[in-house]
């Protein structure tokens, strides 16, 4: 099953940056990588439920602003202390100027 949701406009997210997107009581983070691809993950750090969209994107890494937990946002993989639980990721697609994520 697929459920594509419009998350934001392309230009809402700068290259190598992240934006928060809330939908139906759930929070997501939308990333635009340095090579201009879009990615999406759950919006809260798996350590202490902090909004990752306040964090710093470096290449393919998002770092939590609170305690520096790191994830590869392209795969959701936790990249070391203090995080050990991976982030859930979601497929994305770009149509025209809009970015969609598949939350099904």
């Amino acid at each position: 099953m697929t459920q594509w949701i419009e998350a934001c406009a392309k230009d809402d997210v700068a290259q190598e940056d992240v934006k928060r997107f809330d939908h139906a009581g759930h929070t997501y983070a939308i990333y635009r990588s340095p090579d201009d691809k879009f990615y999406a993950t759950d919006g809260l750090c798996t350590h202490e439920k902090i909004h990752l969209a306040d964090g710093l994107v470096m290449d393919h890494i998002i770092e939590c602003p609170k305690h520096n937990g790191r994830f590869d946002y392209t795969t959701g993989a936790a990249k070391g202390a203090p995080v050990c639980v991976n982030l859930k990721t979601y497929p994305t697609k770009v149509e025209g100027i809009k970015v969609f994520i598949n939350i099904a």
Partner: peptide, 11 residues
């Protein structure tokens, strides 16, 4: 407030 300064301190 909250995580307003986390990014800047990290850089």
């Amino acid at each position: 407030i909250g995580n307003a300064i986390g990014r800047d301190i990290k850089v």
